[in-house]
């Protein structure tokens, strides 16, 4: 089994970190995983995305043309990745910042007001984690518990105090996705 996914947003929205959480969780579960960021010369204001491939077998290409899952945190990311998604793929849309609905009918779309939920939890910077929760629940690639354990194990020491909030964010996102797809 192999799942490839893309997480994309403005620089600063935490797209790269969201991908890393999944990569850590996959590694800790004993799976193969690759994480590749976009990287650019401009210091500010660009978009950032990463590609994560998770597999129970050796991974060949770490890049994909038609991802099976994606989180789009802003409008340009939706515009870019919606047409590229594999049919039947899971598309998590940050509806707090994206006014339009995806047009494709062959995707499993989960709209999550990630910024609003994160703000409710007291920290808008958790929006990426909310989205990760939704993705994990919808795509069934890893368990929420595995991601939670990965956060506990790999959050840098100076951010450890944010762990409970991260867990909450993750679970809120997962619950929302479960409800949406039920």
């Amino acid at each position: 089994m192999q799942t490839d996914l893309i997480i994309s947003g403005f620089g600063g929205q935490g797209a790269l970190f969201a991908g890393q959480i999944l990569a850590y969780a996959a590694m800790d579960e004993g799976l193969h995983v690759t994480w590749i960021p976009s990287y650019g010369p401009e210091m500010r204001g660009g978009t950032a995305h990463c590609t994560v491939v998770i597999s129970d077998d050796e991974i060949g290409s770490p890049l994909v043309r038609n991802p099976a899952a994606a989180i789009v945190l802003n409008q340009p990311s939706l515009d870019k990745y919606e047409p590229l998604m594999a049919a039947g793929g899971v598309l998590v849309v940050n509806s707090s910042l994206i006014p339009r609905r995806p047009q494709r009918t062959d995707l499993r779309v989960v709209e999550v007001p990630a910024n609003a939920l994160a703000e409710e939890l007291g920290n808008v910077r958790l929006a990426n984690v909310v989205a990760v929760g939704a993705l994990v629940a919808a795509a069934g690639v890893l368990s929420v518990e595995a991601v939670e354990r990965a956060l506990a194990a790999h959050l840098p020491e100076r951010h450890k105090h944010l762990l409970p909030a991260n867990s909450q964010a993750l679970r809120r996102g997962a619950a929302l996705a479960a409800a949406a797809l039920a």
Partner: peptide, 10 residues
């Protein structure tokens, strides 16, 4: 190449 330099993997 640059992608392997930037890539994370266990």
């Amino acid at each position: 190449d640059g992608s392997l330099g930037q890539m994370m993997e266990p």
